[in-house]
Design a protein around this nucleic acid. Structure first.
Lengths: 199, 199
DNA sequence: ACGGGAAAGTGAACGGCGTTCATTTTCCGG
DNA sequence: CCGGAAAATGAACGCCGTTCACTTTCCCGT
């Protein structure tokens, strides 16, 4: 396991904040270096290149998103989980649009870290299945569908094709969210023919 | 109406091809200029700056996507439209990933051009509603939900979280697509007849 | 047919970018 | 306290988008 150098963390953290505030074009080697009180060339002692730093930032963004997704501990175990979960994801996307985009689309693959958004989401879905809120089935597949819908909603929102008014916006979100959950909801009849293979 | 200068078109088209092949970082003022046989500084006689060229490329990508989305003319009017439509969208995303990303996420707003993907999609949805394939309701809202799901699917596919195997991939796509259409489907209609056993 | 003015193209230059490299500074264990 | 390793430096390279004064090209009104 790598030694997790301190300067490594300082650099990644500085880059993270710059990225969150100014986006990809604002995150510059020289600016990152300045933020940690050093010259740009010094960064190369700790990261192979800029992309490596961006990877670290993306990991951090993924973790930040995962933390936001995680249900609050005090949550009433009888309450439904899915709509609040979607709400939290959308909140994160609105509060930190650049980090959300990075977390959901930068890396070639989802982080498999236990603390990553993917695993948090899957675990939430699994709990919802156990309580009958979602149809029994492949938890990974359900998580995928749910996540696809969330990403899509955010993508559309960013294109400005959702109402600007806060209340209507929320309504449109949940109208769509409802469509998703309905698609995954316990069958009025048998829904999926394939669920055996993947688990 | 602007005069639709010829050089304008040449430049945009060169930029389009470069972007499709090499992505955002490959699309350089100097390269575009070389492709039309001119120096970089000459481009500024026709476009205010690089972003303006990128806007033109994004418009072109939107139109290309719309053409792909449009149902083939010979289509049997009795056949279902939604799943083939989703299939075409996904095909485009696989064949031209960079153009798809640009068309779906570059601009601040959807193009309202009649030939844009947004309008084609809405019109397809409207026809599906008329035939009872989708529940009656707000066509725009349905189109939004559908498009959200498609964008999300593509986004997830690009992260590598879908099977690599071609058949399974298709299966996973349509499993998810089914969840969407189910969410939008008329309340009591016979559950979308064919379950999507690809493989 | 031609002169002149507008449009288009040029080449050099600017500052900023990521990255490299030889050199210098800083740090710390024996 | 010293010597070598680690870290930081500053200058440089090539590419980027963009600007500007200048030249070339084109075409329209006389």
């Amino acid at each position: 396991m790598s030694k997790l150098h301190l300067p490594h963390i300082q650099i990644a953290s500085a880059a993270f904040h710059i990225y969150a505030a100014e986006g990809p074009k604002g995150m510059t080697m020289r600016k990152i270096a300045a933020a940690v009180g050093v010259r740009a060339s010094a960064l190369y002692r700790h990261f192979r290149n800029k992309d490596a730093i961006l990877d670290a930032v993306a990991d951090a963004a993924d973790v930040a998103l995962a933390q936001k997704l995680q249900a609050p501990a005090k949550q009433n175990p009888k309450k439904r989980r899915m709509k609040p979960l979607i709400g939290r994801a959308l909140d994160f996307a609105v509060e930190q649009p650049k980090l959300f985009r990075l977390a959901t689309s930068h890396r070639p693959r989802w982080s498999d870290a236990a603390t990553g958004a993917k695993n948090i989401l899957t675990s939430e879905v699994r709990q919802a299945m156990e309580k009958g809120e979602l149809a029994q089935g492949d938890a990974k597949g359900h998580a995928r569908s749910l996540w696809a819908q969330i990403c899509g909603l955010v993508s559309i929102r960013e294109r400005g094709d959702l109402p600007d008014n806060r209340g209507e916006l929320r309504g449109a979100w949940f109208q769509t969210a409802q469509a998703v959950v309905a698609g995954l909801a316990p069958p009025l009849r048998a829904a999926t023919s394939r669920s055996a293979a993947a688990a």
